[in-house]
Write a protein that binds this DNA or RNA. Structure first.
Lengths: 63, 63
DNA sequence: TGCGTATGTAAAGTTAACTTTCCAATTCAC
DNA sequence: GTGAATTGGAAAGTTAACTTTACATACGCA
């Protein structure tokens, strides 16, 4: 599972900490997702998609 | 998180056990998802979406 | 150079998404 | 109605997605 989180976050000029607060998760969770240490839960994936105004499939790439 | 799993599965005339095998999870996992005992991981959600030829958003409803 | 800000990541703990096993409850064909 | 197939769901165990804490690294900028 790859994702476009870092790319999308930077495109919006938002810090990991800001994104984390908006999504109600820890900064470490954002970092871990961006660096591929683990996958989001489906609930978090929905929150992320909603935050960026995209679909889950547009952000997370499952091969 | 609601989902249309049971509806979609029955529409295809497939048993829980068959769907479970196709998705490489246990039958109990399918039953638990259908009856709302827990949410799928994002990986399983992708597998389910792919199986039914739909997007995650078309199957799982996050309010 | 040195400081403030942002990020990387490890350790240890909690919780929820799974597993296997088991049995009870439906449903369906005959 | 009986028996077989299907589903519901509990119990106990494992794993991965989180948490908090802590510290190290990198990167402007005065």
């Amino acid at each position: 599972m790859k994702n476009r989180l870092e790319e999308l976050r930077k495109a919006r000029g938002v810090r990991q900490e800001e994104l984390a607060a908006a999504l109600e998760v820890s900064r470490q969770t954002i970092g871990s997702l961006e660096n591929g240490r683990y996958n989001p839960s489906i609930v978090l994936a929905f929150k992320i998609a909603r935050y960026f105004g995209l679909t889950i499939e547009e952000i997370f790439i499952y091969d």
